[in-house]
């Protein structure tokens, strides 16, 4: 049996490692998208536990309330694809953690909630991890306004989001919009990882070549 195109992509992605900093609305949904595509190893980090309020947007289930997000997410990813290796770190990341945990990653996804943490990881990766790609999510609160969500690329820093919609009491983060951005981040990861992917020859084309 020849390998199908999606299988070939999954097999190819199996060699890569992606780091995900934060396992909330962006991180949990982005991790699941990457797991479904077959990215071989995920390094996830978060210090929080799953709450009832998280379930309107984050990839967790009601029976996981009270558990550490990194453990619940590892379980959910492995239910989707048991072949994926998930390194889970229950910690609030600082500069030295970013340098250490994500050193072996091909791409890092910034999926923090707080602006201070976003600044910390962007400065750390750009300033101290030369050659490393960082995909950040900035601006996704509220609903609607799909068409102002975009991607901004500057060398190895890629920003996904609308850049303006900050979380407030009356502008919460909700599943659809944060998922759009989380999946844009996953899509950018694939664009980077699949740059040198050579698709398998379709079977009929192969036969033609032999004739």
């Amino acid at each position: 049996m020849p390998v199908s195109y999606p299988e070939a992509i999954s097999k190819y992605l199996g060699r890569f490692t992606v780091g995900i900093a934060g396992c909330g609305g962006l991180g949990s949904n982005c991790a699941v998208a990457l797991a479904r595509c077959g990215v071989g190893k995920l390094v996830i980090a978060d210090y929080d536990i799953v709450t009832l309020q998280n379930l309107n947007r984050q990839y967790y289930f009601h029976d996981q309330i009270g558990r550490l997000k990194v453990h619940a997410l590892r379980e959910n990813i492995q239910r989707i694809n048991p072949a994926i290796s998930v390194k889970a770190f229950d910690m609030k990341l600082c500069v030295s953690d970013v340098l250490e945990l994500f050193a072996g990653c091909d791409v890092i996804v910034e999926a923090f909630d707080k602006a201070e943490m976003k600044q910390m990881i962007i400065e750390t990766v750009l300033g101290q991890m030369p050659g490393k790609y960082l995909i950040s999510g900035i601006g996704m609160a509220g609903w609607g306004k799909t068409d102002i969500i975009h991607c901004l690329r500057s060398d190895r820093l890629i920003i996904c989001g609308d850049g303006v919609s900050e979380v407030t009491e009356t502008l919460p983060v909700l599943a659809p919009r944060v998922n759009v951005v989380a999946n844009m981040q996953a899509n950018e990861v694939l664009e980077i990882l699949l740059k040198e992917f050579v698709p398998p020859l379709p079977e009929n084309q192969h036969e033609d070549n032999i004739k």
């Binding site: 909330g24 900035i138 901004l152 919609s165 979380v167």
Partner: peptide, 12 residues
């Protein structure tokens, strides 16, 4: 020059 000024906002 190529300048990028990113405004970081909370949410994720």
């Amino acid at each position: 020059d190529d300048v990028m000024i990113l405004h970081l906002i909370t949410g994720g």
